[in-house]
Design a binder for these strands. Structure first.
Lengths: 198, 198
DNA sequence: AGATGGTAAGCAAGCGCTTAGTCACTCGGC
DNA sequence: GCCGAGTGACTAAGCGCTTGCTTACCATCT
């Protein structure tokens, strides 16, 4: 848990302001002035730390995606049973997308604003995240504990379900992140036709 | 099936150009010149048919949402068995979001650009769509053919899954809309713990 | 004659980003 | 211990361009 009450440094304040602004109004709906003034600085301050508005978005997307990839790998590493692995992965993934819904919204729905080169780098990380999940599903199918006519599409659907939490989840909403996470674990296990719950 | 080769009228060309542009670059990333020139007209032409760029988006969102609501009602009306109803609804919903993925992307991910008043009108239609699905799930649970610890969250998840098809589906992709639809039918029925497939 | 659907030209505001400079701080040489 | 050169973070001002939208006008159809 990182402390948050003592005023963080400028780079951090800029990053947080950018996430909030991009999340609320989108990349193109956000001005560089929005970001810098929300961070308590002048319009030019952003350019001390980032070469352009697009590079700031890229930095947020890169860090955010790496974080999710590591989260996914850690979830899977805690067990060697596909049922537990899938359950843990989906639970952690869904919880994270509920807790960090604004950040997740930005890095999932603003990617079209990235340059071709930057987008390619992000897609590479996303591919790795896909692979973590797909491998778990494949191993479950191979060992007979999962049953699905199309493991690839089922994997995609499970990932899709988790990502979309970032779109609909609200802090003042009906469910806590843990409640969403627990239910999504069950849903994912049903989707793969798991014989028993993990 | 509407014909598309004979040049459609200006309003239609504007609407199509707007969907394409909003879908590709987002509302704020699209200029009024993008739209009107893509429709083969001068920059001012948009204002003959729409009061502002925001009202054009609202019109697209309104028509698109009404279309989906009617699609959902029609799917459910074809049967009185909850298993068949849910299967048909999810199948039609997923297929539609794959076929019309650009339009669906616009009306699901650009809503933040609407005025408060217009957003409220769209939310009302979305609420009706939610209700159609939730009623089917509730009736299935009540009659014992479905089994889920939280019918409301399960309904939301099924809807979420269908909407997110618009985000990831590509025309040049691995699956046809019908393949996605068929698989999503199965996934949804598993998610509600349906005793038998419909 | 009036309504309808369109254009050419352009305005005021806002945009991303740059420039030139200020300020607080660090650090090696004497 | 003190000093001047260098460094990194930041701002005031504003440039050149693009934005959404308006105005004045025109052509066609009823």
């Amino acid at each position: 848990m990182t402390e948050s009450s003592p005023e963080p440094d400028s780079r951090t304040r800029l990053a947080r302001a950018a996430v909030d602004a991009f999340g609320a109004r989108g990349f193109h709906g956000t001005t560089t002035r929005d970001i810098s003034t929300a961070a308590g600085m002048s319009p030019a301050a952003m350019y001390v730390h980032h070469r352009s508005k697009e590079e700031l978005l890229f930095e947020l997307a890169r860090v955010g995606h790496v974080r999710v990839l590591e989260l996914a790998r850690a979830s899977v590493a805690r067990s060697s049973d596909p049922v537990t692995q899938l359950g843990d992965l989906v639970e952690d993934f869904a919880r994270d997308h509920a807790v960090s819904h604004t950040g997740a919204r930005v890095i999932n729905y603003e990617l079209a604003a990235l340059s071709d080169d930057h987008l390619a780098q992000i897609r590479a990380i996303r591919h790795d995240i896909d692979t973590v999940l797909r491998d778990v599903v494949s191993r479950g199918v191979a060992s007979g504990v999962f049953s699905t006519p199309d493991p690839q599409m089922t994997s995609l659907a499970i990932l899709s379900l988790g990502i979309d939490v970032a779109r609909w989840y609200r802090d003042e909403g009906r469910w806590t992140p843990d409640e969403v996470a627990a239910h999504y674990r069950l849903l994912a296990l049903r989707m793969v036709g798991a014989s028993h719950d993990g």
